[in-house]
């Protein structure tokens, strides 16, 4: 501060300096409040709860792959689609430990299309084992009672028969996780137990209408990795789906639109809610796979906000031609 300045000018300068600092302080307080606010309170779990962080399960060199198979039969469609992407061996190598995240959300029969179809599970397990996988685990944290969900959806018996383990969620299987830079997934329980030791993660999801988010495909499928009172997230369904897509980087995702649940999702109920759409979509880019799949529900990707959110966050792309999708027609 120069002593040559008149006193008024000094006061003004000092005031501006203080105003600047106070403004910075206010901004810092506001930012801290915005970022650190926690209306829920801490989780019960863990003594000083060690957090877990999901690794990336992406297979090096296999990014930006997308294939679409037109077929009315799941098993041949899956085989053809994988062939188009370089074969199952491009994703699963000998000795791998593979987790299949299915959608077993509801205790409904396979015919209602609200859950991953057991045929798809059987074929994927078989392919993984044939590629030399040491272990295949099928898991989900369903909405309804887990044992009945896996039994009634047919996924449990199908997986076991094909040689996979079925991992039902137990209280010990959940560990807190935080998405770096996330707004919703903070210190939240993640279904981590079944993923221990796993080095490949494949998502198998049916294509469904969803009352809250319009469409439920492979990104929404990761919702089943959350525990706790996760339905609080329904207030920001698009936000949570986009964050889930950032949290989980799978080796491969498969959207089963051979039959799609086009109305009254995600539970459906009537066979009349289903429509044969004869399409199976596979890829390593969740956003692109889902963007193709919502077309089966008569939607365009702009109508499903979480696709844009996830693309903006760098999870994948909505520019489908840039991925050079492979199209396969089976008779």
């Amino acid at each position: 501060m120069s002593p040559l300045l008149p006193p008024d000018e000094m006061d003004r300068r000092d005031f501006l300096r203080r105003a600047g600092l106070a403004g910075l302080g206010l901004a810092a307080a506001g930012a801290l409040g915005w970022w650190a606010y926690d209306g829920r309170g801490p989780l019960a779990s863990g003594e000083a709860g060690p957090q877990v962080k999901l690794p990336s399960y992406a297979v090096p060199g296999q990014d930006r792959k997308l294939a679409l198979v037109k077929s009315g039969h799941r098993a041949p469609a899956l085989r053809a689609g994988l062939e188009a992407l370089g074969g199952i061996k491009a994703f699963v190598r000998s000795g791998d430990q593979v987790a299949l995240k299915v959608n077993a959300a509801f205790a409904t029969p396979p015919a209602l299309g609200a859950t991953t179809h057991p045929e798809l599970v059987t074929e994927m397990v078989r392919l993984c084992l044939s590629a030399g996988a040491r272990r295949v685990v099928v898991t989900d944290n369903p909405i309804n009672d887990p044992a009945s969900c896996f039994a009634l959806s047919g996924i449990g018996p199908a997986a076991r028969t094909a040689g996979a383990q079925v991992a039902l969620p137990s209280a010990e299987a959940f560990r807190p996780t935080t998405l770096a830079g996330g707004r919703l997934i903070k210190d939240w329980p993640l279904l981590y137990g079944p993923l221990k030791g796993i080095n490949k993660l494949i998502g198998l999801a049916p294509v469904k209408d969803h009352h809250r988010s319009r469409a439920s495909v492979t990104m929404k499928n990761w919702y089943g990795l959350l525990g706790g009172r996760r339905n609080v997230f329904h207030q920001d369904i698009n936000g949570i789906i986009a964050e889930l897509a950032r949290l989980v980087t799978p080796s491969l995702v498969v959207a089963d639109g051979v039959v799609s649940l086009v109305k009254n999702g995600p539970t459906g109920g009537s066979l009349e809610d289903l429509r044969p759409t004869d399409t199976l979509i596979l890829g390593t880019d969740q956003v692109a796979v889902d963007a193709l799949a919502v077309g089966l529900l008569g939607l365009n990707p702009n109508q499903v906000p979480y696709l844009g959110l996830a693309a903006a966050a760098g999870v994948g792309t909505l520019d489908l031609p840039s991925l050079k999708p492979v199209r396969v027609e089976l008779g």
């Binding site: 506001g30 650190a36 606010y37 210190d187």
Partner: peptide, 24 residues
């Protein structure tokens, strides 16, 4: 508690209002 837990729980957010008013 923000230092010890990384979060500001529920009503404790009022404290930031006090900070703001004190700055003014």
């Amino acid at each position: 508690t923000l230092l010890t837990t990384g979060t500001i729980f529920a009503g404790l957010l009022w404290g930031l209002a006090t900070v703001a008013l004190t700055l003014i």
